[in-house]
Amino acid sequence: MGSVYLQTLRRDFRLMTRQKSDWLNPLMFFLIVLTLFPLGIGAKPNLLREIAPGIIWIAALLSVLLGSERLFRQDYKDGVLEQLVAARAPLFPYVLAKISASWCASGLPLLLMSPLMALLLGLDSKAYWAMVGTLIIGTPLLSLLSALGAALTLSAEKGGILLALVILPLYIPLLIFASAAVEQAGFGLGYSAQLAVLGAMLCVALAGVPFAVQHALKLNVG
């Protein structure tokens, strides 16, 4: 079990170093969306600071969604998944490895880019730390849910837009609580309750989503 996990993880990291556009493009998309908001609304620092939490999280949702479409696609096309299912190999470590790798490719860079976002949108330090907190808890949740969406729509004909339709509603609670936490912090209020709810959602997703992904993969391949 552990070896399958490590093998898949190592292979995914190697693929990531070779195909950099796979994980760089969603990040560039994220930055561009962040830039579009001030351009569309106007460079009003107060207004921007006020809506920054929402902007950051919507951009994060969309960029993770954009990257997740490719998550299982390649393994599906070149038959790796089929082999795994046919060999009755345990899919669970494979799924976990895929999700971990996708978090490293999409969630972690967002976390590393957070100072840049704070600069661009003029967040103060309190709101910044709240945002880091929500990103730490929220991005794994994003990766889990988008893996589910990618697995469900794997063999569908209209992949891309269907994935968005299926998975965006599931993101909504995350969006609400994460941006509420950053907003509260911006007002100088406590936000541990929102973080706790986010943590609870992450725990539930961690317990359930890998199994659902496993099942979804099987029914798309079998």
Binding site: L152, S155, A156, E157, P173, V204, V209
Partner: peptide, 29 residues
């Protein structure tokens, strides 16, 4: 989403099963 997912596959059986998974996941909502 459930309706769209169910109708998105060339193989109807896959769509039915995928919709079942999504319905079960969505019940968390």
């Amino acid at each position: 989403g459930v309706i769209a997912l169910q109708n998105a596959f060339s193989e109807q059986a896959t769509g039915d099963k995928a919709a079942a998974v999504l319905a079960l996941v969505g019940v968390v909502n």
